[in-house]
């Protein structure tokens, strides 16, 4: 355990899970969209909706979408900043759902050319987890360099991606593949120990039957 997890992090209050974690989830949704969000529909569930507003969760998720970090004081004025930057947002309270984590949020985002739907939860101490992307079940923290591919569900795709990573000397920390139906679209999340080279996105996009590649680092 890091000594700076005990004294630290520096954050905007009042709550590590309801404020700092909410900013991180917004950051991740923005990265998954891969461009400046222009329209956002945000649904806050359970404790995020009930206690969250008093803890600034609504401002924090918008701040995250704008790319602010959890220690920036302008989180407080995220609504005004969003208007200035042309992000049209709508916040909703979801139905109480016991099957979801108490601090769950769903983002429906649109940029100039892309669209995505991301669900995640804040699991304590500012740590977060993404649980769904565009209807695919996933589970990752965003704490590692991350590669996400959307591709056709056929033999060989995973191998061609991992072969390329091996060639670049990149070690995989965690990976997960999920699909909605056999033979249709699948989504793969790979978290790596090593930094990703800038060229990797383009290289993976050129693999046959890979429709979309998202890469980001912390």
């Amino acid at each position: 355990m890091d000594i700076f997890d005990i004294i630290g992090p520096v954050m905007i209050g009042p709550s590590s899970s309801h404020t700092a974690g909410a900013v991180r989830l917004g950051n991740l949704a923005r990265k998954i969209l891969g461009e400046e969000p222009k329209k956002a529909k945000i649904i806050l569930f359970n404790s995020f909706a009930r206690t969250g507003r008093g803890h600034g969760t609504d401002k924090a998720v918008i701040a995250g979408l704008l790319g602010f970090t959890p220690d920036e004081e302008r989180i407080k004025t995220a609504f005004e900043e969003a208007r200035r930057r042309g992000l049209a947002y709508q916040l909703f309270t979801g139905e109480i759902d016991e099957s979801l984590h108490p601090n769950t949020v769903t983002f429906e985002l649109e940029g100039t050319s892309k669209k995505t739907q991301v669900t995640g939860c804040s699991i304590g101490g500012g740590r977060v987890k993404v649980t769904a992307i565009d209807g695919f079940d996933v589970e990752f923290s965003g704490g590692y360099p991350t590669i996400i591919t959307v591709h056709k569900d056929r033999p060989g795709i995973v191998a061609s991606v991992t072969a390329h990573l091996a060639h670049e000397g990149i070690n995989i920390a965690q990976m997960r593949v999920s699909r909605k139906k056999r033979g249709q679209e699948a989504l793969m999340v790979i978290e790596t120990d090593d930094k990703l080279p800038e060229t990797i996105k383009e290289v993976l996009e050129n693999i046959k039957d890979i429709h979309r590649v998202i890469t980001f680092s912390e």
Binding site: I7, G8, M11, G13, S15, S16, T19, K76
Partner: peptide, 21 residues
């Protein structure tokens, strides 16, 4: 107070107890 107003603090060890240290 700063914490509850969405100001910048150091969690020590948590945000709720950030004033004591």
């Amino acid at each position: 107070n700063v914490n509850a107003s969405m100001g910048r603090i150091v969690a020590a060890p948590t945000a709720g107890s950030c004033g004591i240290v």
